[in-house]
């Protein structure tokens, strides 16, 4: 993960379509039937998931 940057996905709003998983260069998104989460230790902070999600769900968070 890039310093101080994390990506979060609001699972409650997610349709579990897998577009974010398809584009993620780091294999950092874990998707199951009705759960999705970013694995911080793998995420490289590129933001591709946020750009391509049909709903625009993944959001960038700056940690302190």
């Amino acid at each position: 993960m890039k310093q101080n940057v994390r990506y979060r996905i609001a699972a409650a709003a997610c349709d579990f379509c897998g577009v974010c998983v398809a584009v993620c260069p780091a294999g950092a998104i874990e998707l199951k039937e009705s759960s999705v989460r970013v694995l911080d230790e793998r995420c490289v902070g590129c933001g591709d998931c946020a750009v391509m999600c049909p709903l625009g769900l993944p959001v960038r968070e700056e940690a302190e």
């Binding site: 577009v19 398809a22 584009v23 993620c24 591709d48 750009v51 391509m52 999600c53 049909p54």
Partner: peptide
Amino acid sequence: RTPPEFIASC
């Protein structure tokens, strides 16, 4: 991996 330039978001 399907990079962003090779996927349609629907």
